[in-house]
Design a protein around this nucleic acid. Structure first.
Lengths: 153, 153
DNA sequence: TCGTTCATGTCAGCATTTTGACATGCTCGT
DNA sequence: ACGAGCATGTCAAAATGCTGACATGAACGA
C-alpha cells in the first residue's frame, strides 16, 4: 500500500531487558547496592549521604527542599534529617525565623564526615566512568538530564 | 614538582546534581512516576507490569527468577505473583513437578491485558526517545548496560 | 548410599516509606 | 485590612519492602 512509510519507525525491542526503562532500573539498582555497601561502613544511608551533599552545596535548605531534591516525601525527608541531627552532623534552629521552614546546616563534624565519605563514593563513580568510553560520560549526563526533564513535564 | 601529571584527571563536579548517580536516580524517579501514572489506569503496578513482560518473554519463570529480574526479594516477588494470580492474569501449578519452583505462565487474559498496556507504556518510552538525538538511544543502552555490569561485579 | 551444599518457597517480625489529614504562616490580589 | 491560595512541618495509619529464619527438594561428591 504505502511504500514510503518505514515499516517499524521506533518499535521497542521484544526483549524487555533491552528497553531503556529496564536498563535504567538495573543500573540504578546496581548503583544503589554499591552505594549502600560503602556507606554502611561509615554509618550512613544513601538518603543521608545525598542530604549531606546537598547541604554542603546549598546551606540552609529546608526539609521540603531536601525532600524534593532527594525524591522522597516530606515525611521521609524529616526522618532522614532527624537521624542526621541525632548523629550531630547537621543543625536546625528550634524555631523558624521567617516562615515555617527551618534551614538545615552542616556542623563541623558534618563537613569532615562528608569529606571522608566522598572519597569512597567517588571511587564508586570512578568504577562507572571506567566502564565507559571517556567521551560518553558527558554525553550520558546530558542524555539522562533530557530524559528526566522530558518525563517530569 | 611533577608537571607531567594532569592536575585533576577525573574530579567529579562540585554540584552533586550533575553526578552520574544523581542523574540516574532523577531519571529513574521520573520514569517510575510516569509509569505509575499510566499503569494505574489499567489497574497494574510497575512490578506487576514488569513481571508480565518477563513472563511473556520467558514463560515458566519461577518466583525466584522473577524476583531477581525485577530487583526485589523473593518475598516481595511472591506478593506480586499472588496479586497477578488473583487478578487471573497468570497461573501457577499448585504443586511443583520438578523442584520446589512453580513455573508461572500468562493466562489468555494476561496476554491481552499486557498487549493493551504495552501501547501506553511504549508511549512513555517514546517520550524518552524523542528527547534524545536518535543516534544516542542505542549508545545510551550500551552505556547503561556497561554501568550495571561494572557495578554488579 | 549418604551427607553436604545450595536454591526455592514461605512464615513472622521489623523497618522504611507513603498516603491522608491538619494546623501554621507567608504571599498576593482585592 | 483581609481573605483565598499555597507551602511548610508534623501527626497517625496504612502499605510496602526487607531481614531473619525455617522446611523442603535437588545436585553433587565422597
Amino acid at each position: 500500500m504505502n511504500e514510503s512509510v518505514p515499516p517499524e519507525p521506533s518499535r521497542p525491542a521484544n526483549d524487555v531487558t533491552q528497553h531503556v526503562g529496564y536498563l535504567l532500573k538495573r543500573a540504578q539498582a546496581a548503583l544503589r547496592a554499591a552505594m549502600d555497601k560503602v556507606l554502611r561502613e561509615h554509618g550512613l544511608t544513601v538518603p543521608q549521604y545525598a542530604t549531606l551533599e546537598l547541604l554542603a552545596l546549598h546551606p540552609g535548605m529546608s526539609n521540603a527542599d531536601l525532600a524534593r531534591a532527594t525524591f522522597v516525601t516530606r515525611q521521609s525527608g524529616n526522618v532522614v534529617l532527624r537521624g542526621l541531627q541525632e548523629a550531630g552532623l547537621i543543625t536546625r534552629p528550634a524555631t523558624a525565623d521567617h516562615g515555617r521552614a527551618r534551614p538545615a546546616r552542616l556542623t563541623e563534624e558534618g563537613h569532615t564526615r562528608l569529606a571522608t565519605v566522598q572519597a569512597t563514593v567517588h571511587a564508586v563513580e570512578q568504577r562507572m566512568a571506567d566502564a565507559l568510553p571517556p567521551r560518553r560520560v558527558t554525553a550520558l549526563l546530558t542524555d539522562l538530564e533530557r530524559i528526566a526533564t522530558a518525563l517530569e513535564d
